[in-house]
Simulated assay, not measured.
Amino acid sequence: MRLTACLLLCLVVVKCDDGQTVSSPLAGFLQTVVDAFPVLCDVFFSVFGEVNEIAFQTALSAALRLVDLAFPAKPPPRVPEPWWGDQAKHDTSIRRFTVHFSDEMIADLRYRIHNRRNLTQPLHNAGNTYGTHAGYLAHFLDYWTDGYDFGAREEWLNSFPQSITNIQGNVILLISSPILSTAPTLGLDIHFIHAKAPNPHRKKVLPLLMLHGFPVTAFEFVYVIQDLMEERDDCDFVFEMIVPHLPGYGYSEATYKIGMAPYQMGIIMKNLMLRLGKPQFYIHAGDVGQAVGDAVAVLFPERVLGLHTNFPFRYG
């Protein structure tokens, strides 16, 4: 009875200021409780004595069903899918991409670093408290000009298969009486790494969309990709990883229109997965990418099989 009473307390209805009932956060909270029940059993044990784990799971599952019946989830809103590009394109092809550091680019970078203004003398014993320490920064600038092997890095980055495709650039119908005509809308070129784990034993393939944060790029995942490419005897599945640059990051095209929010980036990412023939997929994301991944999961729950984050953060 004491356990039941505690569960009933979880079913308190939260009211908004305008009188509307908020049920989704409550249901999500209870689901988290179900997932974490081994730890919670220890908590309940310290408070109430020995707890029957099976009864605990059953009671929580029943509570979740009651929440779903009492407060059925509303379907996600239908959102527009505008075009964000600046040039007319109607190209749904997937084009191979190769990283290339030209001699001109490297020479220009080294010239600008060599001919920079003198750095301000840092404060004594301040470390990086008041900004990046000038002596510390100078070390990296010297490395970029004289020590960094652009050729070796270019070769290594190109060991990961990469492509570009234009997203949300479609042909639309223009009405100009008395003639009907068509014109291409303006999509964005999205760059992505597409790595498929070897699958000699024909295991189940799990599509995994990996979304980076700020101020980094998709290449932050290359070491993780290498680990996930290895086939494991204790798993009945392998991963197929799609690792895009968010719009405006890395080699993905930026928009010059105002108003692109994380949820609109999420729409682009969903459409990228559909372009690649992945109607359902998993997501891993962190930082800014987590805000984008959240939007995909909320707006397109039928597409997202699971969402994992290493950096939960709420934007807006």
Rank of each mutant, 00 (worst) to 15 (best):
R117M: 08
L141H: 13
I242S: 06
P200C: 05
M229R: 12
I225N: 01
P279M: 10
C10E: 13
I267E: 10
V39C: 05
E50P: 07
S61K: 04
M260V: 08
V243R: 03
Y315Q: 14
L272Q: 09
H133D: 14
K204Y: 05
A138M: 12
G289C: 02
L157I: 03
S181Q: 11
W156H: 12
P77F: 09
G49H: 05
H284G: 04
D234M: 02
G248H: 00
L276S: 00
H133Y: 03
H212R: 06
L9G: 11
S23N: 10
M229I: 04
P184W: 03
G169Y: 06
Q162F: 03
A36H: 09
L123K: 08
G248W: 00
P247L: 09
V39D: 07
L11M: 11
D18P: 10
T185Q: 15
F37H: 07
R95F: 07
S181P: 01
N118Y: 07
C6K: 07
M210R: 06
S61G: 02
L274T: 01
E81F: 11
F300Y: 15
K74I: 09
V99E: 01
V205T: 11
I167P: 04
G277S: 11
A254C: 05
H308W: 07
I268Y: 12
P244K: 07
L66E: 00
A5R: 09
S177T: 11
L11Q: 14
G135E: 15
V39S: 10
N170D: 14
Q162W: 04
P215W: 12
L8K: 11
I267K: 12
S176Y: 04
F239E: 06
R232P: 03
A55D: 10
T182R: 15
L26T: 15
R117F: 13
T21N: 12
M229T: 06
C6I: 10
T145V: 15
G259R: 14
F29K: 09
H124G: 04
V67L: 15
F219T: 03
P247T: 08
A152D: 07
L211P: 00
M260W: 04
Q226C: 05
L274P: 06
G131A: 06
V33F: 10
D287M: 00
P75N: 10
M105V: 13
F313Y: 12
T309D: 01
G135S: 13
L209Q: 03
G147N: 07
A254K: 00
P80G: 11
D103Q: 15
V39H: 11
I113M: 09
D91P: 02
Y223A: 08
E155R: 12
L137A: 13
G293R: 04
K257P: 01
A134Q: 11
P247W: 09
L186T: 15
K203Q: 14
K257M: 00
H90Y: 12
V43D: 06
E104K: 01
Q31W: 08
R110Q: 10
N158F: 14
Y249R: 07
Y223D: 12
I267N: 01
R153M: 13
A70P: 03
L123I: 05
L276W: 01
A73P: 09
M265P: 05
I54F: 05
P215H: 06
L7D: 04
A62E: 09
G187A: 13
M241Y: 01
